[in-house]
Amino acid sequence: MRADQLAGIGDEAAAALPEQIAAITGLGWSGIELRAVDGHALADLDSSRFLRVHRAVRAAGLRVVCLDSRIGNWSRPITAPPTADLRELDVLAERCASLGTRYIRIMSYLSDGLDEPEWQARVLDRIALLSDRAARHGVVLLHENCSGWAGSDPERMLRLVDAGGPCLRLLFDVGNGVDHGYGAVDVLRRILPHVEHVHVKDAVGSPGHAEYVLPGDGNARVRDCLRMLLDHGYTGAFSLEPHLLTRPHEGLAATDPAPFLQAGRRLEELLQAAPTGVA
């Protein structure tokens, strides 16, 4: 693993950008993933506020590894028109160019009561539409294994890759399986060649009732997933998203960066001591 592969989602540490930057640089890391600043999604910042974000990140010498969108997430079911998604993609693509990244995180839409065949058809059509727009902007959409049609099924994830072409790749979150009811190692084995970005968290509990813990202390088999990725030659970012205080879908925001910093040190330890061989 290279040192420049370590990154973190800034608002997992703090709401305000200076504290986000301080947490990342305090860990000695070079990468930041941007999702929200002062509680506002990156795409919703006006041009002057975004300019301040750009200048602050650059002044800190940080590399932006990904921008996290709301496209396809729990707030936008597949029955909603694509207008908001396309608008957000256009804004974030411009901001990708400014910040020097080409990755935008998306999800794959809740059904809003549709039966599975129609849900699938609409999702694949929407992904094709978004991927075409992404290609025109020169960015890559990263689908996360979270909520949505392809959130927990590796075969559906691969269908998305086919629908999206070269502008749709996969973001694998190591810890999401605990809350969504699947084994992370089993899913990762199936999709490994298509993974270009990784989120790291861990959890205990049951589907729909996950409790988040330090990486390595839960049931997500974080060590095994990290080793599998390293053994495969993965060269993308390991981006920390511990969810210890910040959980946007629950309206929770970080008020103390200490848990994020603790999780960051634990991630470093796991990557340095990842066991060989995955059962």
Score class of each variant (00 low, 15 high):
residue 186 D to C: 04
residue 63 R to C: 06
residue 6 L to I: 08
residue 81 P to M: 03
residue 50 F to K: 02
residue 132 D to S: 15
residue 12 E to F: 01
residue 215 P to A: 13
residue 278 V to C: 06
residue 278 V to S: 04
residue 84 A to R: 14
residue 38 D to W: 10
residue 55 R to N: 01
residue 57 V to C: 04
residue 129 L to M: 14
residue 191 I to Y: 09
residue 133 R to W: 04
residue 236 G to K: 03
residue 246 T to D: 11
residue 228 M to E: 06
residue 67 L to W: 01
residue 116 E to L: 15
residue 163 A to D: 03
residue 151 G to N: 07
residue 71 I to D: 00
residue 126 R to Y: 08
residue 261 L to W: 06
residue 256 D to Q: 00
residue 79 T to W: 08
residue 223 R to F: 02
residue 68 D to M: 15
residue 3 A to P: 10
residue 30 S to N: 13
residue 172 F to Q: 07
residue 61 G to L: 10
residue 124 L to C: 00
residue 199 H to E: 11
residue 168 L to N: 03
residue 16 A to H: 05
residue 271 L to T: 01
residue 110 L to F: 09
residue 224 D to R: 06
residue 156 R to I: 05
residue 142 L to H: 14
residue 202 D to P: 14
residue 223 R to A: 15
residue 22 A to W: 06
residue 90 D to Y: 02
residue 266 R to W: 12
residue 67 L to Q: 04
residue 169 R to K: 15
residue 276 T to R: 13
residue 114 L to E: 11
residue 69 S to I: 06
residue 42 L to E: 01
residue 26 G to L: 02
residue 193 P to A: 12
residue 90 D to R: 05
residue 29 W to Q: 02
residue 88 E to L: 05
residue 65 V to G: 11
residue 177 G to R: 06
residue 24 I to K: 13
residue 140 V to K: 01
residue 207 P to N: 00
residue 162 D to M: 10
residue 79 T to E: 10
residue 83 T to I: 02
residue 78 I to S: 01
residue 91 V to W: 09
residue 195 V to L: 08
residue 2 R to Y: 06
residue 16 A to T: 02
residue 217 D to W: 01
residue 160 L to F: 10
residue 223 R to G: 03
residue 267 L to P: 15
residue 254 A to L: 02
residue 206 S to T: 14
residue 185 V to W: 03
residue 87 R to W: 11
residue 265 R to M: 05
residue 150 A to P: 07
residue 185 V to K: 03
residue 234 Y to N: 11
residue 118 E to P: 07
residue 155 E to H: 07
residue 258 A to V: 07
residue 38 D to R: 07
residue 252 L to Y: 09
residue 210 A to L: 06
residue 248 P to A: 10
residue 43 A to P: 13
residue 37 V to H: 13
residue 264 G to A: 06
residue 54 H to V: 09
residue 4 D to N: 09
residue 37 V to Q: 02
residue 222 V to Q: 01
residue 109 Y to V: 09
residue 108 S to P: 05
residue 256 D to Y: 01
residue 78 I to C: 05
residue 130 L to V: 10
residue 164 G to I: 04
residue 235 T to G: 14
residue 177 G to Q: 08
residue 66 C to M: 14
residue 279 A to D: 15
residue 199 H to G: 14
residue 152 S to G: 12
residue 193 P to G: 07
residue 40 H to M: 10
residue 56 A to F: 15
residue 202 D to W: 14
residue 83 T to S: 07
residue 266 R to G: 09
residue 147 S to T: 15
residue 163 A to S: 10
residue 167 C to L: 08
residue 172 F to W: 09
residue 234 Y to Q: 02
residue 105 R to Y: 07
residue 8 G to Y: 14
residue 251 G to V: 11
residue 176 N to M: 04
residue 259 P to E: 05
residue 248 P to Y: 10
residue 41 A to E: 05
residue 126 R to G: 04
residue 219 N to P: 00
residue 167 C to E: 14
residue 274 A to R: 13
residue 230 L to P: 01
residue 239 S to M: 07
residue 162 D to L: 13
residue 152 S to D: 11
residue 142 L to Y: 12
residue 86 L to D: 11
residue 185 V to E: 04
residue 158 L to K: 00
residue 261 L to V: 12
residue 120 Q to G: 12
residue 188 L to A: 12
residue 251 G to M: 03
residue 42 L to R: 09
residue 168 L to E: 00
